[in-house]
């Protein structure tokens, strides 16, 4: 049983680390600000999620696991707020996203 948990936790930590690196590669490779937000979003959700799941498996049912769950919940609550604030501020500052398809017809929510 212990070896099973060890293997699961190894796999989870390695997958989490790979997703962290993938998100940051996206941050490097993608061409403009609005697409880079998606790369950083991969790190915030999947990378953090798998790493924290692996750590929680290793510490078992204890106070440490409760703290890890609190960290994960806080990341899930704060990361979309920060991303949305960043995107909104960039749009209002006049940065135009590079688009291949624009379905809004130039109309942004909140503008008349």
């Amino acid at each position: 049983m212990a070896i099973f948990i060890d293997i699961l936790s190894w796999a989870s930590i390695i997958i989490g680390g790979v997703f962290c690196i993938i998100g940051m590669i996206g941050l490097m490779r993608l061409p403009d600000l609005f697409t880079r937000l998606h790369g950083s979003s991969v790190t915030d959700t999947l990378g953090a999620g798998f790493l924290i799941f692996g750590m929680a498996l290793q510490s078992g049912l204890s106070l440490t696991t409760a703290k890890l769950i609190i960290i994960f919940g806080l990341i899930l609550l704060t990361s979309p707020v920060a991303t949305h604030a960043l995107a909104q501020a960039a749009l209002h500052a006049g940065i135009k996203p590079k688009l291949t398809v624009d379905k809004t017809g130039g109309h942004i929510a909140g503008e008349d």
């Binding site: 060890d6 930590i13 680390g17 790979v18 962290c20 690196i21 940051m24 590669i25 790493l51 290793q58």
Partner: peptide, 20 residues
């Protein structure tokens, strides 16, 4: 095992720094 994860996180930290 945690050091493997730590190395991965540090590599991505370097990439984030380059973007910054």
């Amino acid at each position: 095992m945690f050091s493997v994860g730590l190395i991965a996180v540090l590599v991505s930290l370097v990439l984030a720094m380059v973007r910054a």
